Computed example of a mutant assay.
Amino acid sequence: MTPGSSSDLTSATTSAAQHHPTSGRERAEEHLATLPDDAVWVWSDGSAEGGVSAGGIGALITLPSGEEHELRAPAGRICSSTRAELVAIRGALEMLLRLEGGLAESPVIVCADSQAALATLASGAGSQATALGAAVWRLLLALTDGGRRVFMQWIPAHCGIPGNERADVLAKEASSLSQDAVPTDVRSMVKAVGRSATKAWRRSWPDSFFKTIMGDRMPMPVLLESRDEAVNVHQLRAGHWSRSQSYLHRIGRRPERDCPQCSDLACPAARCLVCREGPDTPEHVLLRCPCLAGARLRLLGNIRPDPTQLRDGGAVAALSRGYLSHQQPLGYGRP
């Protein structure tokens, strides 16, 4: 394919980025072997610690003569993985243009293992929302000036492809370089502030049954057919279950002759109706009630599982169903 316009290059980028999205090393190398033999090969990679900081870029350029050139450079103290990948592509293309003055006729094959970066470029030159994306497209158009072919090729990461492995090593080495002179873009700064605020908010969560289960994580969506079951899951993990006798007694929905309402968990009115061994708090229902020992063993592998295993919404739903089924013969299946 000889791209003669920005729309042609967009098509080339899209098809390359989506080619063999799930292949391993063998399928990747099989496809790479179909590309032009006389090409300039560009292997680029970006690195960011935790995907958010200490960015580094690496690139390996191999000319048709066999001559190799390496690039390693920092990408910013605050830097996402996708940004690092795009900076790596930009740096590699800039080096290539400097090496040959942009006049060589050999096709160029740019190999990158970031589908996110390639998808960003695939939207086209006019659709770039960042200065970085626009800069990469200017370089791509400069390379294709005169009809030169440029292939943007996705490859799977960490599967032993030599060029990709060398670029990965270079990027990781570059992440330890000084970041003082590397500017940070506004988008990265805004995202960093948001991440920092979210972490601070999660660290400030009060001690609770929910925090014992989730730590500083947010729960995944609970996808169940019944809305009632989803409510049960959320309430049980939150530590306030509207089906528990202790909760209903505390709010006056389960008064008894000797105690119409109280918040004392030692009150007989708060006891578990099934085992009578303690108040039927969510902790008791999910982790301790003998009636669910078998269910916990089947679902979680232990009759006294670690609370973090309750992050599995499906397991919590099954335990709540089991507990309510034990209550039904007692006439307390529904509040």
Rank of each mutant, 00 (worst) to 15 (best):
V193P: 11
V193E: 13
R195N: 02
R195I: 04
S196C: 14
A197K: 14
A197S: 15
T198G: 07
T198P: 01
K199F: 12
W201T: 14
W201S: 15
R202W: 04
W205G: 04
P206D: 09
D207P: 08
F210D: 00
K211G: 06
T212Y: 02
I213P: 01
I213R: 00
D216C: 12
R217M: 14
M218V: 08
M218W: 05
P219Q: 12
P219F: 01
P221C: 07
S226E: 09
S226T: 08
R227N: 08
D228L: 01
D228G: 02
E229A: 15
N232A: 10
V233K: 01
V233Q: 01
V233D: 00
Q235W: 05
A238T: 12
G239A: 11
H240S: 11
W241M: 05
W241Y: 14
S244G: 12
Q245H: 13
S246E: 06
Y247E: 04
R250A: 09
G252R: 10
P255F: 10
E256T: 14
E256H: 11
R257K: 10
D258K: 07
C259Q: 07
C259L: 08
Q261W: 03
C262F: 10
S263E: 11
S263L: 12
D264T: 14
L265S: 06
L265Y: 04
L265P: 03
A266S: 15
A266Y: 09
C267W: 01
A269V: 07
A269K: 03
A269H: 00
A270D: 00
R271P: 03
L273E: 07
V274F: 03
V274S: 02
V274M: 02
C275V: 07
G278L: 04
P279A: 12
D280H: 07
T281S: 05
T281I: 05
E283M: 13
H284Y: 09
V285S: 02
L286A: 00
L287P: 02
R288A: 13
R288D: 13
C289G: 00
C289Q: 02
C289N: 00
C291S: 14
G294N: 12
A295E: 11
R296Q: 07
L297P: 05
L300N: 03
N302L: 08
I303Q: 03
P305F: 06
P307L: 13
T308V: 15
T308R: 05
L310M: 13
L310A: 06
R311V: 11
R311F: 11
R311W: 06
